[in-house]
Every structure is written in structure tokens, then in C-alpha cells.
């Protein structure tokens, strides 16, 4: 997935949208938010949820694959949810996006060195290792995670988990 993927058949620009909501940190709130998308058959591409600095609230950042005009309607519906305190759409040009990846890769013999070079290039970290595997982490722009993932394929990816993107508005925006 890439935030610059074009709309293709859709009429209104980008199809992938990053929505950031501040919600009450209560049971069931995520289901309410997710339900509004599910009901319309919209897929949530990525999702990140965690409490904000004020633990009464959580921030949900999600990316959805929807044309702009139905999205506008869903955003208004989301805003109607009683537990949703704030909602905004963040465009890639006006925000800073990050995502974290944990990945376990095969790392044996001479390729081990090659892998460590790649880790260095991407400023990733080695979190764990045994004789034949390494567990790496990388926090970066989602597109950079895509690149890293692509480069790791030739080593053999054993397990991979991405967190889904989080985003904040850029300071100049």
C-alpha cells in the first residue's frame, strides 16, 4: 500500500485516505467506528489505536480505500458517534506519517552480513537473533517500510507485523 496510489477508476483524486479521530477511551468505541465502514462495505487498510497523553481519550488513525465523496459522508457519520470527540482527514502532504514494522528474517552464513548492511542502510534495528534468524524493527514512513519489506524478501521473511500508520499534522501545515 502506498499513500500516493492514484485513484484509478475513482473520480476524486486519491482513494487512500488517512483519518485521525480522537475518541473516548471506552469499551466498544472501536467497534462503533469500524462498524460505520463495515456497513458500507469499505475496507480499513490499516488501523492504529492507543491512548493519547490524556488517558481518557484514544487516538485512532486509520487508512481507508474509499472515493472522496462517500468518504465525506462516512466522516460526517463518524462525527455523529457520541464517543467521537474529534475527527480530521490528514493529507500526506500536510502530515507526518510513521509506521513500525517487526520482521523475522532468515539470516544464515554469508547473507547475514548482507542483511546487516541493509539494516544499516535503512536505519533499522536488530532486536533478536539466533543462529539462523534475525528479528528486525523499522519505524519510518509507510512507503519506506514497503521498500524495506521488498528488499527483505530475497532473504526469506518468516514473520512480519506492521502496526498500521500513525500520523500527526505537520507543523508548517
Amino acid at each position: 500500500m502506498n499513500s500516493s496510489v492514484d485513484a484509478g477508476a475513482s473520480d476524486h483524486g486519491h482513494r487512500f485516505h488517512t483519518i485521525v479521530t480522537t475518541v473516548e477511551n471506552k469499551p466498544g468505541v472501536l467497534a462503533r467506528v469500524a462498524g460505520l465502514f463495515a456497513r458500507r462495505g469499505f475496507n480499513i487498510e490499516s488501523l492504529a489505536v492507543a491512548p493519547t497523553a490524556d488517558e481518557r481519550f484514544s487516538r485512532i488513525t486509520f487508512t481507508v480505500d474509499v472515493a472522496s465523496s462517500p468518504l465525506e459522508q462516512v466522516v460526517k457519520q463518524l462525527d455523529k458517534l457520541i464517543n467521537v470527540v474529534e475527527i480530521s482527514e490528514l493529507s500526506p502532504t500536510e502530515s507526518v506519517e510513521r509506521e513500525l514494522m517487526l520482521v523475522t528474517v532468515e539470516a544464515t552464513g554469508r547473507r547475514r552480513h548482507e542483511l546487516l548492511e541493509l539494516v544499516d542502510d535503512f536505519r533499522a534495528y536488530v532486536l533478536d537473533a539466533d543462529g539462523s534468524h534475525m528479528m528486525l524493527s523499522l519505524a519510518a514512513r509507510p512507503s519506506r517500510l514497503d521498500d524495506f519489506e521488498e528488499r527483505l524478501r530475497s532473504f526469506g521473511i518468516v514473520q512480519l507485523q506492521r502496526t498500521g500508520r500513525v500520523a500527526l499534522p505537520s507543523l508548517e501545515a
Binding site: 460526517k76 457519520q77 455523529k80
Partner: peptide
């Protein structure tokens, strides 16, 4: 009164 109706 419901913003979601406007333009729906």
C-alpha cells in the same frame, strides 16, 4: 440539524 444530511 444533522450535518450528515447536508449534501448526502
Amino acid at each position: 440539524i444533522d450535518a450528515a444530511e447536508l449534501g448526502k
